[in-house]
Design a protein around this nucleic acid. Structure first.
Lengths: 253, 253
DNA sequence: CCAAAAGTGTTGAAGTTACACCCATGC
DNA sequence: GCATGGGTGTAACTTCAACACTTTTGG
């Protein structure tokens, strides 16, 4: 973060503008989200300690750059896929007592009215190990389905991001940013089920995804698995990008 | 506007937060948008004089309320359908010279960094006649397709709103907020064509829209038209709302 | 030999597209 | 009687949903 401070040393954090990131990852089983633990007193219940990573915005930064900076501070990843979820600005969104307490410890004007612009991002979970940063005692992956409560209005933001993700998967290919370079159709299948939050017929899924013509069969098999080994695939980046731009009608069942 | 000033007299307009409204209307022929004319010197070209209605946000207002207030000041309409388009916050979005000139005449801190949260709304064009307001010398309807340039980043916002509207029409019923209570299938057909910006087969359109089960045939005909008079329909509000919530897959051709 | 996930086709139903003519009215 | 938009059905094609068994491997 030091280099960023230097880069912005002549500019102020705007006390009214923040960004929050909903960072999704996939562990081949379920959808996960990267949250920071505010580490406030043990009297707070567990869920309430968790928050989306986010921070105030510098006056010379555009919104996506700010989200990208937050994400980079936390994960050291760059060039991450980001999609705007929207702006959240209820006047009382930060006025809960436990939230105010925390803000007092990290912000110059903790009581200022703040609207936040949320982004969601998709990352490969094993590209890095979460670690603490300037604004987080600790950061970790949590199963999305286990999250029932978050700080501020972050739970609402998470739900909005999930809604966007579900919309996206119906009209554009998805997986490039979440899966490793090589993956099996079974893994891609599980990813789609995790995002859509319902089970999909295996044969129909395979037929449909293969028809999109975005996958290349690597003629390489899993080894060491206690069942019939699966073929590995990778995305055909050209076709994937083309299809991302044009979109399609209604993937899903 | 006076009552609003009073209501907010103890609170400040936040110099960093604004809202802009993309207000769509339908005249049975094409899609229109309500724009304000900034009325700056004749040396500016025509398009550059036009802007989306918008204003700074009070610190006690939530975002949708602020958009609703702007819309109400301009049109005196209440309870208008609003959908968030997103946040727009490039640091240089208001720094064009002609834009700065205008801001100096209406804002206390014209150079402050402002992010705007845009909403689009759908209104029945004949529910009111546009008129001037505190922040607009004049307001008028313009054909969306004629707009090639707007103040600030408003053209970009308009395009984003159009994109959202096109997405929406594919998965939810649309027309309730744009058409008068009674309308013909031909008018609804034209509305869909105007929004999707392409022509749709008449028979297929009728079959598909009727199958949605959101229309009630009023058993009443047009009079005075120089062709076979059309049946009037109205929306079945219960079914319309139900379908708005559940959505459907891919209307359109 | 058992457990586990991979891989593979068919059928009936539903939905989509394309297309052309007659009708009721005002002028 | 002519111009204008209203109103209607069908056939070919494509897509979708549902469904069960064999294969390959590790242990």
């Amino acid at each position: 973060m030091d280099n960023i401070k230097v880069k912005n040393s002549n500019l102020e954090l705007n006390p009214n503008l923040s960004t929050d990131c909903v960072i999704f990852g996939f562990d081949f089983e379920k959808l996960n989200i990267l949250l920071i633990d505010r580490g406030i007193g043990a009297e707070s219940n567990d869920s309430n300690r968790l928050a989306l990573p986010g921070n105030l915005i510098y006056d010379n930064e555009n919104l996506e750059m700010a989200a990208s900076r937050v994400l980079n501070e936390l994960t050291e990843l760059k060039d991450i896929y980001l999609e705007q979820v929207g702006a959240f600005g209820d006047p009382d969104r930060i006025s809960k007592e436990s939230d105010q307490e925390w803000l007092k410890s990290i912000r110059a004007k903790p009581e200022a009215r703040v609207i936040t612009v949320a982004y969601y991002s998709l990352v490969k979970m094993d590209d890095y190990a979460p670690h603490a940063s300037s604004f987080a005692k600790s950061a970790d992956w949590y199963a999305v389905n286990d999250i029932k409560l978050l700080a501020f209005d972050h739970y609402e933001i998470l739900q909005a991001a999930l809604r966007k993700l579900k919309e996206k998967i119906r009209i554009q290919p998805l997986g490039f940013n979440l899966l490793p370079e090589k993956f099996t159709l079974g893994q891609l299948h599980k990813l789609y089920e995790a995002i859509l939050d319902k089970s999909l017929d295996k044969r129909n899924f395979r037929r449909k995804i293969l028809k999109l013509d975005i996958l290349t069969n690597l003629d390489e098999k899993q080894v060491g698995v206690p069942h019939k080994p699966s073929q590995f695939f990778m995305f055909n980046e050209v076709n994937y990008k083309k299809l991302s731009e044009t979109g399609f009608d209604n993937f899903g069942f």
